[in-house]
Write a protein that binds this DNA or RNA. Structure first.
Lengths: 213, 213
DNA sequence: CGGCGAGTTGATAGCTTTCAAATGCCGTGG
DNA sequence: CCACGGCATTTGAAAGCTATCAACTCGCCG
């Protein structure tokens, strides 16, 4: 619905004026679950994971985020997830109070955030579909396909996917045990759908993986 | 962030002018997955389920929706879910083209939709948490708690919850087999956390259910 | 009263987790 | 440059949980 939306020059300038460029090395926390939420973020380059800690010790990863994705939504003024970089990452950081004032002057800017929120909801639905496949091999196969949509981490000509996350991250995203990640990768390799070049570099056959889902 | 937001009188009137009040009996389809998407909806009273059919035959329910919830998001002009009433339901129906024109004149109205989208994303995250609990008894217990938040279907004084959905709906929402719904309800009853008064009327002990999650 | 569909219950098979141990990888210090 | 230590990953075997298939019960409606 808002795919053709563009900001005016003045709107873009005003948004830039309240955006700060920041940098975080790999595996650094940007904010923690329960922190006071002062900023919303947008990824310029790199990758981030959003995770939610449960009282029983489970650590559910809600999303892996990529360039242009935004994050930092609040729940009663607090971040309800932790945000952690997977790799070296550059971000825009926007203060919530400044954004709120800006939107009162330039309400059209909300379209950007609305579109982003709708995208995030759709992504979470896809995540839910993946994480509830009865067979873990389907979950992992679908996950590898999703990862291969990120141009920064997938080389189309060679079919080589670079995993920015470790085995535990994958397990926490798909809802199974870390050992199952390994075993199921082996299963996919035995089926001839992937080749493990190293722990984080995998050659994948997207067509045949797509066929089993 | 937008909790204090209010439309002006003119904005509210303009929105009303493009809203149609419609009615659907229980168990009727409002739209089907793959249909051309012309309208967005808001529930005035009743309840709706959003479901997504997969190629392999699985039917994943994405959400149960209640009064004030909105639905009807599109994916390339098409509905990507089916929307079906659970009970007798009254709705607002808003045409997308009319809404798009309206937003160009009154961009502040987008705040309503942004808030709704953020709410839906949060709901989907909670759903994901529920549906990925390793033990089905926790999934179902958490589900009953969520249902008991709907004032129209839960009587606080008696603790009696009326389930608007059937066993298959619950199974499709939580990602297990229909038989497991029955067995796990029995398990909760054996633990003394609930009493099944009839198939759809259940007395629940919210405190003790909350304690096991 | 009969019949149908929703819900329940039982037994077995299949899949994933858990606990334990082995292997491999990589950066650090000698 | 090589050895060592620590951590991530992989592998194995047994236990636990849920799906499946089948049969049965219940409630509702004609």
């Amino acid at each position: 619905m808002f795919s053709s939306f563009r900001l005016t020059g003045a709107e873009r300038e005003a948004l830039n004026a309240i955006s700060t460029r920041i940098h975080r090395p790999a595996k650094r926390r940007i904010y923690a679950q329960g922190d006071q939420g002062h900023y919303i973020y947008r990824i310029r380059s790199g990758a981030v994971r959003l995770e939610h800690q449960l009282k029983d010790g489970r650590n559910q990863i809600f999303a892996f985020l990529w360039p242009d994705d935004m994050f930092g939504t609040l729940d009663g003024g607090l971040y309800h997830t932790s945000a952690i970089t997977l790799v070296d990452t550059y971000l825009f950081q926007i203060s919530y109070p400044a954004l709120k004032s800006l939107v009162e002057v330039h309400p059209r800017i909300q379209t950007l955030f609305l579109r982003q929120a709708l995208d995030y909801a759709k992504t979470t639905e896809r995540h839910l579909l993946l994480a509830t496949y009865p067979l873990v091999v389907k979950r992992l196969a679908g996950f590898l396909l999703e990862c291969s949509r990120q141009a920064d981490f997938f080389d189309r000509t060679s079919g080589i996917l670079t995993l920015a996350m470790d085995r535990k991250d994958i397990a926490d995203y798909l809802g199974f045990a870390i050992e199952t990640t390994s075993r199921t990768l082996k299963e996919l390799e035995d089926m001839g759908l992937i080749q493990r070049l190293s722990a984080q570099r995998i050659r994948i056959d997207r067509d045949r993986i797509g066929a089993i889902i």
